[in-house]
Structure formats: C-alpha cells, structure tokens
Computed example of a mutant assay.
Amino acid sequence: MSPKHLIINCDDFGQSPPMNKAIMHLLEERKVSSATIMAPAPGFEEAAEWCKRRGQANIGLHLTLTSEFDAIRWKSLTGDHSLHDESGYMHKTVEEFERSADTGAVMKEINAQYEAAQRFNIPLTHVDNHMGSLYGMATGRSHIPQAIRQCARWKLPFRLFRKVHPSDPLLATIPGVERIVAKASSLAGVFGVAIPDYLLSHPFHVLEGETYETFKQSMVEKMYDLPEGISETYIHPAVEDARMLEEVPHWQKRVWEYRLMLDDDFAYAIKDAGVNLTDYTYISKHGRASRVGSAVTLVRELLRK
C-alpha cells in the first residue's frame, strides 16, 4: 500500500484577532501543517509580525479577492474600482467578483499581496485562494491560468488537485469536474507548478442537527478513508468570541475546527489510520508532474468535444 500524506492548512490567517489567536496556537503546538495569510484583511499585520518574529516557515499566501462578511470587511491593496462593490469593499460573493473584476487589476492585486508578505520577510511555501474566487466556479470566468503562471514565477506550489475523491461533498458534485481538473492540473504540470493529488473539502457551515461530536466523527472517518498519495484539507479555526459568534455566520464551525485540532481522538485517528501529516515542502519535492506528459494531457483535453 502506498503511503497517505495529508496537509491540514489553516485558511484565513490574518482575518481577525480571534482567528489569529487560534491559528498561532495550532502552529505553535504543531497540530496543523501550515496556514495561509490574507494580506488585505484587518488582522494581517498582527499575523505577519508574528510570522516574522518567529521565522515561521510553513506559511502560504491566501490570495484574497472577496470580502464576504458584513462584520469584517476589507478593501483591495491596489484600489482598483473593479475589485470593489458599491460599499467600497471587495466583493462579497465569488459571482460578483467574477462578473466585475478586470483581469489586469486582479493580477496587480495578486502581486501586491505577494509583495506585502515579502515586506515582512515571510518565507512563503505555497499559494491558495480565498473562497475559490479564481477558479471560475460561479460563472465560468476563471483566472486559474494567470494564477498558475504567477506561481511559476514565484516558484511556489498552488492549491489545485489532480483527482477528485468520489465521496467529497463539494467537489464531486460539480458537473464536469473531472475535465476541469484534468485541464487545470495539466496546465500546472506544463508550468512546473507543484500541486497535491487531492483536495478534500467539508461543509463550511453548521449542518442541520450537527454537533461538535458528529462533526468530529465525520472528520475522523475522513482520516480512515484518505486516498493514497498527497491530500490537502483546509480548516478555518477560531477561538470563541461573543461578537463573532453573533455577527459572523457559522462562526461556531470555526470554533469546532480549532477544538478538533486539539482533540486527542483526532490525533489518534491520524496515527491509527497510518496518515503522515506533512506540509507543502513535501509537495515542492514530490508534487510536480512531467512537463511533456502534462502537455500531452492538456492538448488532448483542449481538443475534446
């Protein structure tokens, strides 16, 4: 049996102090693989200063083009009008972003976010994307080719995936997802950008009737059902916060995710299931595909009707 490698990434590092507190703790205790930082968000400087002070070496860049919650809004770093809604903040939804954003402005913003992390001397290990805004899932207007080219220039892995796990509650339900994945992953291969084999999702919101215990059980089961190869899953951990619990939808799920990473039952499941917890340095070494083979696959997919 081939080994099973898993990356547990904390998204939204820098979103707010309650999220920063949880993510810093999990990174300090080595309960997670990595975190990705949001340069436009209000908690960015706190998170970046902490990374700089510690020389934290497992931090990625969370490319942020949307600002979804009324209670926590942020503007772009570049100020282009196409990246903002009528309130002057970044678009709330992916659909609004896809319909409104100028591609040139998107690329300038992505570069500005990278440069913001560089100013704090954060040794970035990878790149991913807040709310999947670059993937074209809402209207089909994707910025993935541009993002992949940029990651190639930065020499950083990117959160994509080569295969779809059949039991994934989100990705497996997207119509035509196999072809979409084949084209995107082969493009990454052509550009020499390393990616995981699988991306494993779970519901962002609290499901009807869901409790911490049922959520924990579902995540434990996922460890035993982990596919062979390199997988990544993502969480949005946060500490209890009265204002956030009241004003941010499904904040309780974030608190559960933080609690889960500290839960001995979950740690035991990882070990018992034979899962190797790793990070993006492993993907940098083992996550690249053949450029020639990728080019052949890409051409074949582009020619398919």
Rank of each mutant, 00 (worst) to 15 (best):
R30N: 15
E49P: 00
R141A: 15
P18V: 07
L187R: 04
K216F: 07
N111F: 12
F97H: 03
D12N: 12
P40Q: 09
Y89F: 15
A112W: 04
V164A: 07
V190C: 05
E257M: 05
A182F: 07
A101G: 09
A101P: 02
M223V: 09
N129W: 06
A242S: 14
S167C: 12
H84C: 06
A71I: 04
D85C: 08
L63P: 00
E221V: 01
Y282E: 11
R162W: 06
P175T: 11
A48P: 03
M38K: 03
L27I: 07
C151N: 07
K155R: 14
I174H: 09
P249H: 05
F158N: 01
H202K: 15
L200H: 05
H91R: 09
A71G: 05
F266C: 03
T139R: 12
D272Y: 06
S185Y: 04
R53L: 14
I110D: 00
E213F: 05
A273L: 10
F13V: 07
P169D: 06
T297P: 00
R73M: 06
L61I: 05
G55H: 10
H250L: 00
R288G: 04
G176Q: 08
R30T: 10
D265A: 13
T66R: 01
A242T: 15
E49R: 14
Q217F: 03
P249W: 06
T233D: 01
E29C: 08
H202Q: 15
H143Y: 15
R243F: 13
T36L: 03
M261D: 02
K31Q: 13
A112I: 07
G140H: 05
R259Q: 15
L262M: 12
M38S: 02
A35K: 00
